[in-house]
Amino acid sequence: MAILDLANPTRFLALSARLLPWLFAACVVAFAAGLYMTFFVAPDDYQQGATVKIMYLHVPAAWLAMMCYSVMAVSSLGTLIWKHPLADVSAKAAAPIGAAFTLISLITGSLWGKPMWGTYWVWDARLTSVLVLFIMYLGLIALWRTIEDPIRAGKAAAVLTLVGAINLPIIKFSVDWWNTLHQPASVIRMDGPTIHPTILWPLLVMALAFTLLFFVMHLMAMRNEILRRRLRTMQLQAASARVGVATSQAAE
C-alpha cells in the first residue's frame, strides 16, 4: 500500500489543506524562537562584533538553497523514472522558492562582506558557487516559462535539474580550486567564529524555521500549480466544445 497515496492531486489538495495550518503555526513559533535567541541569547563575536548576526540569515538561506535544489532533483527523478504525476508539479513549485533563498543568501553574504572586506562582492569560493547555483535556478525557471505544454516542460526541466545536480559537486570543487589558484591576499576564510554552543543553537533553530517556511511555501505553490493545470485543461475544453454543447453534456 503506498504509504500516502499522494499521487492523486485531489487527495493531495485535501491533505495539504489540513496540513498547512499546522505547518504555518510551527514555522511562526520556530521563527519567534530563532529571532529571540539570535538577538538576546547569542553573544557577539570577538572579531566581527554584532555583524555575526547576519550569519543567522546567510547560512540557513544557503542551506535552504541547497536543500531546495535537492528536493527538485528528487522530484526530477520522480518525473523521469517513477513517473509520479505530482513530481513535476513539485519541481516547478520549488524552483522560484529556491531562487529566492539563493538570492537572500547572495545579498546577505554581500552585505556581510562589506564591513569585513570593504567591498560588496568578493569572488570567494562559496559565494561564487552560490552565484552559479542562482543562475541555474533562473535557467530552470526560464525553461519552465518557455515551453508551453506542462508535461513536456516538466520532462525537459527534470533532465536539466538532474544534469545540474550531477554538476554541483564538480562546480563546487573546481571553484574551490580556482579560488586557491588565484589566491588574492585580501580574501580571508568565510568560516567566521568557531561554532560555540550558544552560537550553534540559534543557527539550528533558524535553519529549522527556514525549512518549515520552505515546506509551507512549497505546498502552497504546488496547490497553485495543480489549479493552474486544471484551469488549462478547462480552457482547452472550453475552446473545443461550444459552451452550449458542454452544458447539454452536463445535463445528460
Partner: peptide, 14 residues
Amino acid sequence: GPHAGFIVACYLVT
C-alpha cells in the same frame, strides 16, 4: 555595534 545598518539591511532584505 558600528555596522548596525548592515545587519538591519540584511533582515529587511530577507
